[in-house]
Design a protein around this nucleic acid. Sequence first.
RNA 1: GGUCGGGUGGCCGAGUGGCUAGGCAGAGGUCUGCAAAACCUUUUACAGCGGUUCGAACCCGCUCCUGACCUCCA
Length: 486
Amino acid sequence: MDSNLYIYNTLSRTKEKFEPLHPPLVGLYVCGPTVYSDVHLGNCRTFVMFDLIYRYLLHLGYKVRYVRNITDAGHLEGDMDEGDDKFAKKARLEQLEPMEIVQKYTLGFHDVMRLFNALPPGIEPTATGHIIEQIEMVKQILKNGYAYEVNGTVYFDVEKYCKEFNYTILTNRQLDDLLENTRELGGQNEKRGRLDFALWIKAKPEHIMQWPSPWGNGFPGWHIECSAMSSKYLGNSFDIHGGGMDLAATHHTNEIAQSQACNHVQPAKYWMHTNMLTVNGTRMSKSKGNGFLPHELFTGSHELLSRGYSPMSVRFFMLQAHYRSTLDFSNEALEASDKGFKRLINAYALLDKLNPSPKSNIDLKGLTERCYAAMNDDFNSPVLIAELFEAVHIINSVYDGKTEATATDIEALKKLMDDFVIGVLGLKEESNQSDDMGKLLDFIINLRSEAKVNKDYATSDKIRIGLNSIGIQLKDNKEGTTWNKI
RNA sequence: GGUCGGGUGGCCGAGUGGCUAGGCAGAGGUCUGCAAAACCUUUUACAGCGGUUCGAACCCGCUCCUGACCUCCA
C-alpha cells in the first residue's frame, strides 16, 4: 500500500517518507510509564500524541501492532547502578508491597488513558513478565562480547561497542564530550568505563523484587526491558519506536546499543520523539514537582486553575500543538481550548440536522485533501484542526441556511468529520446524557416553548437560567431550541 | 562547558522566500422578547542589527533572550 505519509525521524533529523518494512503491517513500540506514582499531564501528552499517530496509521489502513510497555521493575532511584529501585522505595513510603504499588498505579494509568479516550495498545507487556527474555538477551550480549560481569552485576561495554557502532547516533553527541562531562557516579569502581550501564543488577538480600539468573539473584536494568519486549513482539527490526524526547539521550541510545550488540541490527527504522509539556516555560516533571495530575485538572483543584477542564478539552488542547513542539500549559490556554473544542463538537452534533439543497456551493474535495495533507506532513494535528474549523464554518453556515449543500455533500461532510474528529483526533461528545436525560430535557424545553408562546418570559427565562446553572445551555433558533452541556 | 531546539499579534499555537493559518480574547453589525449560539465585518505579528534577493517573518551572519538533553523523569 502506498501513502504519502512523511515522518520526522530522529535518526536522520529529517522528515522521511514512511515505508513500512512489511506493508500493510506496521510495528509500533512506545515506551510506557514507570508505574511507581501517578502519571502527570506531561506523561499523558506523549501517550495522547502516540494515540493520534496510532489512530492515523489505522485510518490509512495499516495493520498496526501497537506495543506499549509498563515498567514495573528495574528502574533505579537516582543515578546509582546499585541499591533499591523506585518501586521498593515507594513501597516503603506507602507501606505496601512493590507489586501493590505497581497494581495501584497501573490501574490509575489505565483509568486516565480511558478518560482521554486513548485506544489501548494491542499488547501492554510488563518488565516483570519478561524476566526470562531479558536474561536471554543479556546472555547473548555477553556471548557477543559487548558486556562483562562484575560481582553479580552485568554491565554493557560502551567503549567496545563504540569501536564498531555509532553509540550516539540518536543525539549526535561527541563521545569525547560525553566522557568528559559524565560525572563520577556510584558503581563507578565496578564499571570499566564511565559510560557503561547495567544490564542486570545484583539484588540485596532483602530486596523482594529479585529473580535468579546465571549471575546470581538480581533484577534487570531499566533499558533492557524495552529491547527484550520489542524484539519479542515486533521482531528484531520493526517500523516505529517512540517515546518522550527526554528518553532519547539515555534510554533509547542504550536500547539501540543493546539491540545492535545482541541482534546486529537497528531495532527501529523510524524513531519518533514527542516534546515536553511545560509550565511557565519549564518542563513539567516528577522530580521538579510541578506536575499536574489529571484529576487536579478535571476537578480544577490546583492553584493555577480557575476551574476544572474535561478530559476531551484537555486532549484537544494537546492536539492543538504539534507533537514535536513544546506546549505551554496555562489556565488561559486551557480556557481557549475548552471553547474551541466545544465549537468543534457542537458543529459535529449539528450534522444530523442539516437540510440538503438541490445545489451545492462548497468545496469538500479540496478541504478533505488538505486534511490528509496536514496529517501526512508528520502528523500535523494543529493544521488539521485549522482545516476542520473550516468544516465547522460550513456546517454552521448550512444549518443557518446561508450556504447550500447537496445531500451528497452533507454525507461527505459527515464522513470527513467522523473520520478526522472522531477517528483520527479521537475526540468525542462528552455529554453523558442517557436517553432518559434527553427525553427529560425535551419535555422541559417543550414547557418552556409553551411559556414563550404565551409570552410568559419570566418562566422561560427561569428555566433557561436554571438549566444553565446546572451546566446545560439552551440555544434558541428558527427551528426551535437545542441544548448542549457547558 | 558540550549537543539540539525556540523567540510569531492580548493568550495559545501553525506555517512559509511573494498568496487569510486556526482557536480564544477585543471591536462593530445581523438575527432574537431577552440571552446564548450562529453568521458577517474588523483591530493587534513575526526578538534586534546587518547581509543575500526583484521581494524575507521565512535563507545567511552577528547580538540578545530562552528551553530541553548531557543525571531518575513521557
